[in-house]
Write a protein that binds this DNA or RNA. Structure first.
Lengths: 149, 149
DNA sequence: ATACATTAAATGTATATACATAATTTTGGA
DNA sequence: TCCAAAATTATGTATATACATTTAATGTAT
């Protein structure tokens, strides 16, 4: 639905104001799609993001800071996010021997399994974006990158 | 900066996965710009959104539900949002006489003043989007609308 | 070697949010 | 008319988030 109908606002100061609002709205829209998808697996989108980052590191454990650097939403308290994942036995902590301030995090076998299960149903999620064809999706990606300068 | 650098992820399953991530990232980016701008005025972006909706209604008070319908982020508890605005004397509540379930909300004079102050500095915020020219901004708006179907 | 600054992670705390439930009023059908 | 369903707003509660502070380890300049 057009933004105007979604929020019942039919006039904007300029194209940039509309863009801000549209971007906020669409970000929230995507975020809801993802949250719903992850709900049946008991994960938040932040937690899933961390799990995927850890998997991307293969065998190498990675510091809390490095996780934060790679997150889509660079929130301040990755520590507590790790707590949650650890409680579910999806990750484990290891003190780094070279720098004992640093705590390295590693995904567990059951963490890897969970990601697989989630990915098996992921196509359903992508299908919700199919109003755009691939060329348009690419074009949108480029405009978003450019927007952020 | 390109998404790849921002989150240090250089491979995506497909253009749609990248789009989801890019959209989340950019939504958060905009949201931060707005929050920072509003911080000096002591408002959250949700509160500001409500104030602007109320101003848009001119003289007419408007129900809590109608506010929710018009919000960018259609959150469940507008009631408590109104509490906060009322505590700052930016809005007031009025029981509707035709339907006593309904509570109509009205912006106060000082609410209107505050919006004016905020808007006076708004151009600074739009300037942060100036990496896109107006044609591109329009194109982006169209793609976002189309994405949501 | 010591003092001071910096870094990494964790914690405290206030506020925000999601989601379920309640309280009140209105609506609409038997 | 009366009663169940729906609508509207408010509240309870658990969790998430933002932001400041703390703790511990390391780096650096003298």
């Amino acid at each position: 639905m057009k933004l105007e109908e979604e929020i019942k606002q039919y006039h904007f100061q300029n194209e940039y104001q509309k863009l801000m609002i549209n971007q906020l709205f669409t970000g929230k829209w995507i975020s809801n799609i993802i949250s719903k998808h992850l709900k049946e697996f008991g994960l938040t989108s932040q937690q899933y993001n961390v799990l995927r980052i850890l998997r991307g590191q293969k065998e190498n454990a990675i510091s809390v800071n490095a996780i934060s650097d790679r997150m889509i939403d660079k929130m301040s308290n990755v520590s507590r996010l790790i707590d949650k994942l650890k409680a579910k036995k999806l990750v484990q902590r290891k003190i780094n021997k070279e720098d004992r301030r640093q705590v390295d995090i590693e995904i567990t076998a059951s963490g890897l399994e969970l990601i697989k299960k989630i990915e098996a149903k992921e196509q359903n999620m992508f299908n919700q974006l199919s109003a755009l064809n691939e060329t348009e999706a690419k074009q949108l990606n480029e405009l978003l990158d450019k927007l952020r300068g």
